[in-house]
């Protein structure tokens, strides 16, 4: 069973950061229940980690494992597009809360 590992880069605890975290976790819960891990990195606190990933825009999520790595920039408000962009399994399409259908 593959475990997914995502690293989410945010800058401070802004509304945008919070939204990105919530959207990512929600998607993972529905598509990868029990087999995912999310690490949130605040660029302001860990700039060296951000350097490794060459972070420009935030929020940005990187699928660290499994390879290959995918990067998605933005607050992840469109779950379907986020799932495709992160290369997640397609079964059980999620229904995002409060977003466009």
């Amino acid at each position: 069973m593959t475990t997914y590992f995502f690293r989410l880069f945010v800058f401070g605890q802004t509304e945008r950061s919070v939204a990105a975290q919530a959207n990512l976790r929600m998607l993972c819960e529905s598509l990868l229940p029990g087999r995912y891990r999310v690490e949130v990195v605040d660029v302001a606190e860990h700039p060296d980690v951000a350097d490794q990933e060459r972070v420009l825009a935030t929020p940005m999520v990187v699928r660290m494992a499994p390879l290959p790595r995918y990067r998605v920039i933005g607050d992840l408000s469109d779950h379907r597009r986020m799932a495709t962009a992160l290369g997640l399994p397609e079964e059980a399409p999620p229904t995002p809360l409060g977003d466009e259908a």
Partner: peptide
């Protein structure tokens, strides 16, 4: 090199500014 980069939703350059 990697799988690519997609934009989903709103973003800013706060990360770069901080770096």
């Amino acid at each position: 090199e990697d799988g690519g980069e997609v934009i989903v939703g709103n973003y800013d350059f706060g990360g770069l500014a901080s770096r």
